[in-house]
C-alpha cells in the first residue's frame, strides 16, 4: 500500500484492532442510547389510546339537553360541575375560559330561584367591584365578598362548600354573562371540553412505579441514569482496552 492510500480514517472501516473494538463498542452503545430514547417514545406513541377523563363522560351525558335548554336541575348541576372541573386546570386558553365562564354563570342563574338570583347578582357585582381594586388577596373586604358569593352560588349548583371546585366558583362567575349562553359560546364549550379532558394514555402511562406514572419515571429519572451508565461503561472499557493493547494516550 503506498503512502497516499495508507493514511485513511473511516469510522466504518477501522484499520487497527483498537479502532475495530472501539467501533463495535460505539455502535452497541449508540444503539442502546437510540432505542432507549427514541425507540421507547415510538412505542409510547404506537400503543397510546385517546382516553377521556370521567368528567368528560359526565359532561357528554348531559350536554345535548343543556345545549337545547331542556336539561333538568340535576343535569344542569352536572354540566356546571364539569365546567368548573375544567376551569380549575392551570392553563386554559382565554377564549375557552370566557365560554366556560359564560356557561357556568348562565347555569348558576338558571338554577337559582328568584330570591337567590337577586342575592347572587348583588354579591357577584359587589365581589367584582372589590376584586378590581384589591391589592392583597388577604384583604378582609375581598375575602368576605368572595366567601359570601361562594356560599350563595354553591346552593343552586348543589356544591358542598368544602369541595375544591366550590372554592373556584366565585372566580369563574361573570355578572355580564348571566342572562344568555349564545350558540357561539356553546360551540366553543363543546370543542374545548374534549380538548382539555382527552389524554394519550396506555399501559405505560397507567402503570405506577415508585409513585410515578411509569413512562414519566422512565424519561425523567431512568434515562438519565442510563446515560451516566453508558458514559461510565465507555470510559472504563476504553481504559481497559488501552491497557490490554499497551496503548498509552
Amino acid at each position: 500500500m503506498n503512502e497516499e492510500n495508507q493514511f485513511h480514517i473511516s469510522f466504518f472501516k477501522p484499520t487497527t484492532e483498537r479502532a475495530r473494538r472501539n467501533r463495535n463498542k460505539v455502535v452497541v452503545l449508540v444503539s442502546i442510547w437510540a432505542i432507549a430514547v427514541f425507540g421507547f417514545h415510538f412505542l409510547l406513541k404506537a400503543i397510546e389510546k385517546p382516553t377521556p377523563e370521567p368528567v368528560l363522560l359526565e359532561f357528554n351525558k348531559v350536554w345535548d339537553k343543556v345545549k337545547a335548554d331542556e336539561a333538568s336541575t340535576a343535569e344542569m348541576q352536572v354540566f356546571a360541575k364539569s365546567v368548573l372541573q375544567v376551569t380549575g386546570k392551570v392553563f386554559i386558553q382565554p377564549n375557552h375560559r370566557a365560554a366556560f365562564n359564560n356557561g357556568l354563570t348562565w347555569a348558576t342563574f338558571k338554577l337559582a330561584d328568584s330570591a337567590q338570583k337577586v342575592a347572587i347578582k348583588e354579591a357577584l357585582v359587589d365581589f367584582e367591584k372589590v376584586a378590581k381594586n384589591v391589592e392583597m388577596l388577604t384583604d378582609d373586604k375581598y375575602q368576605s365578598a368572595k366567601s359570601k358569593l361562594a356560599a350563595l352560588a354553591a346552593v343552586p349548583l348543589g356544591l358542598n362548600s368544602n369541595e375544591l371546585i366550590a372554592k373556584f366558583l366565585p372566580l369563574e362567575l361573570r355578572s355580564s354573562m348571566m342572562d344568555s349562553f349564545s350558540e357561539k359560546q356553546k360551540a366553543v364549550v363543546a370543542e374545548a371540553m374534549p380538548f382539555y379532558t382527552i389524554h394519550n394514555q396506555s399501559v405505560l402511562t397507567d402503570t405506577k412505579f415508585l409513585g410515578f406514572p411509569f413512562h414519566y419515571f422512565y424519561t425523567a429519572v431512568f434515562l438519565l441514569i442510563l446515560f451516566i451508565g453508558i458514559c461510565w461503561f465507555y470510559s472504563y472499557s476504553t481504559d481497559r482496552i488501552n491497557k490490554k493493547l499497551g496503548i498509552y494516550e
Binding site: V55, V86, I165
Partner: peptide
Amino acid sequence: DFAIVPSPEYAMPWDPS
C-alpha cells in the same frame, strides 16, 4: 388549600391541550 383538580395533561405525553 394544597389541592388541585385532576390534571392528567401535566404528565401524559404530547397532550393536545
